[in-house]
Design a protein around this nucleic acid. Structure first.
Length: 227
DNA sequence: TTCTAGATTCGCT
DNA sequence: GCGAATCTAGAAT
């Protein structure tokens, strides 16, 4: 994965995040324009870093879900819905944050993919805690289950609506390169928590990883891989 | 203006 | 395993 060093160098807190993940660089999002499915695979193994309040927290992405635009009935920007104030960030450039509020109490964090005007996004469902674990425990108010779920990781990393439309190449919310998993380590299954198109094989995760979110048993099971 | 569903989580049984 | 919590966006009227 190539990196966008120039943008990283412009980051005001670049020294802070570089000390968190030495040797890693800000992700180059140009590859994400190929679409959400490709981006969801690319994001596995990458690092998500929050510098909210200048206190770093984050870790390695271990689970993602792709939402592939108007043709995807489960997507917020499905054809029947079109563009709305809520989903407008999905129509923006790849590498932008799309953060939305759901069930009256939870935030979910997505990475925008596809070309500008193509409303595709990748939901980050699971992160392996790596930096600021104590801080995340404090925010979550518990010792375990810190980042294995889309709303949990948002709470642990203090991601909320203020991060909506934030470019993920600069603080306080950054996507960094990381060790790429081998293809054999990547599991594929249907998506979780949705009604429509739930059996589409657009959920990607690291097989056997403890920080993959608890899957509801679908038609093909939590580790099923309908191809 | 009102109604309804929702990409979740957690506590209780 | 089940249901409550909670509130926003979008649809319906």
């Amino acid at each position: 994965m190539a990196a966008s060093g120039a943008e990283a160098g412009n980051a005001t807190s670049s020294g802070t995040w570089r000390s968190c993940f030495p040797g890693e660089e800000v992700l180059d999002f140009s590859g994400f324009e190929k679409g959400a499915e490709e981006a969801a695979r690319e994001l596995l193994g990458c690092h998500l870093l929050s510098l909210v309040g200048d206190e770093p927290s984050g870790g390695r992405i271990v689970e993602t879900e792709a939402y592939v635009g108007p043709r995807d009935p489960a997507c917020h920007a499905a054809e029947r819905t079109g563009r709305t104030r809520r989903n407008a960030p999905m129509f923006g450039p790849a590498g932008t944050a799309y953060v939305y509020f759901v069930y009256g109490m939870h935030w979910c964090f997505n990475v925008v993919a596809g070309r500008p005007g193509d409303p595709e996004a990748v939901l980050i469902r699971g992160v392996e805690p790596g930096i600021g674990v104590e801080l995340m425990r404090e925010r979550r108010g518990r010792e375990s289950d810190l980042t294995n779920g889309p709303a949990r990781l948002c709470q642990a990393m203090a991601i909320d609506g203020s991060m909506n439309e934030h470019p993920l190449s600069r603080p306080p919310l950054l996507l960094l390169t990381g060790p790429r998993p081998e293809a054999s380590q990547i599991g594929v299954s249907g998506r979780i928590g949705i009604r429509e198109a739930r059996d589409w094989p657009l959920r990607f995760f690291l097989k056997g990883h403890p920080d993959v979110s608890p899957a509801s048993p679908g038609p093909s099971g939590p580790t099923g891989a309908p191809q």
